[in-house]
């Protein structure tokens, strides 16, 4: 059966994920070394140690995401995160930066390495580079590939492949998007925050809600219109061709109906996005996919909950998995 890899932004969310049937949980330290560096979120060193021990006691694994790109003047912060994750007993480190992979492979040669989606490794040659040079055992594929492309890459790669099945989508190649930096000076790649909340404002007007990022108006939502995150890529803009979502609609990925195809493509693990979400999200989404996977294995019809209440914009998409463009 494919593994279910689940998000946790707090120790309580990690417990919820285990209770709901996660095979593994991915999480990060409360600093700029991980790509979900939001206020009040993530794990102290002590919390990480205790959470890994708890997960191991319950038969689950913990993958520590150290998936931002180190700043030239502060590489020590990222090296310390690697050392501390290893000593806390992490089952794997999820890394994006090749310098950090090199450090980890040399310093901790027995540590299992996964290539983060932030590395944007989208072809067999790129994946082979990580496997041959750093011993990477798994690659998290970017969300720009169709299922047939995933099957081809998986067939040609020595690495296991992991793909996202639910949650937020990025329109850009991961790890290379500078929209947030443009508006706020901070990005998921360096500081671990896309659209940092310190730069977000919501203004209530007579017509609804106006969301802004770094002084740029991102969107205006009518009173009962479903909303999305205040990111530039999901902003609604006026252009010479008209007004609308010119980059990407505010929708969430939901690949529940594609699980059979992903299994047949040889995918090893399915990942749920959302370390910034609450326990209610983690519990419900993980349970949903645990039931769907069980149904897939038994060949039965799954009686599972709709995830619509948890989707951005109250809408879902199959994203690039069912791609009809190039």
């Amino acid at each position: 059966m494919m593994e279910l890899i689940c998000p946790a932004g707090t120790p309580a969310a990690l417990k919820s994920a285990i209770d709901a049937g996660a095979d593994a949980i991915y999480c990060g330290f409360a600093d700029e070394t991980n790509a979900r560096n939001f206020p009040g979120l993530n794990f102290s060193r002590d919390e990480m140690r205790k959470s890994i021990a708890l997960a191991h006691g319950r038969g689950a694994r913990v993958l520590v995401a150290i998936n931002t790109f180190p700043r030239a003047s502060a590489v020590d912060i990222w090296h310390r995160a690697v050392d501390d994750a290893v000593s806390a007993g992490a089952d794997a480190l999820i890394l994006a930066d090749i310098g950090l992979m090199d450090y980890t492979a040399r310093r901790h040669p027995n540590q299992r390495l996964h290539v983060s989606v932030q590395a944007a490794a989208a072809n067999p040659d790129a994946i082979a580079f990580y496997a041959e040079n750093f011993g990477a055992r798994r690659v998290v594929l970017p969300r720009v590939l169709s299922v047939p492309e995933i099957a081809e890459i998986t067939r040609e790669s020595a690495c296991e492949t992991e793909v996202f099945v639910f949650g937020g989508l990025c329109v850009m190649a991961e790890g290379r998007c500078s929209l947030s930096s443009y508006a706020t000076g901070k990005s998921p790649n360096m500081q671990g925050v896309c659209s940092p909340p310190s730069h977000v404002t919501y203004e209530q007007t007579a017509d609804g809600t106006k969301s802004s990022l770094g002084g740029f108006t991102i969107n205006r939502f009518a009173m009962s219109e479903p909303a999305g995150y205040p990111t530039l890529c999901k902003g609604r803009f006026s252009t010479a061709q008209g007004a609308g979502y010119i980059f990407e609609d505010p929708v969430s990925l939901d690949a529940t109906t594609l699980l059979r195809g992903l299994r047949d493509a040889g995918v090893t693990a399915l990942k749920i996005e959302g370390r910034q979400r609450g326990r209610a999200y983690v519990e419900s989404v993980v349970r949903h996919f645990r039931h769907a996977l069980a149904a897939l294995e038994s060949g039965s019809e799954a009686d599972i909950a709709s995830l619509k209440p948890f989707t951005e914009g109250q809408a879902s998409t199959l994203g690039a998995y069912r791609k009809n463009w190039r």
């Binding site: 219109e225 995150y229 209440p309 951005e312």
Partner: peptide, 13 residues
């Protein structure tokens, strides 16, 4: 009590 997700409540307004 953590029984609902804050982002989901934001999305549904």
């Amino acid at each position: 009590e953590g029984r609902v997700d804050g982002d989901a409540l934001m999305f549904s307004r």
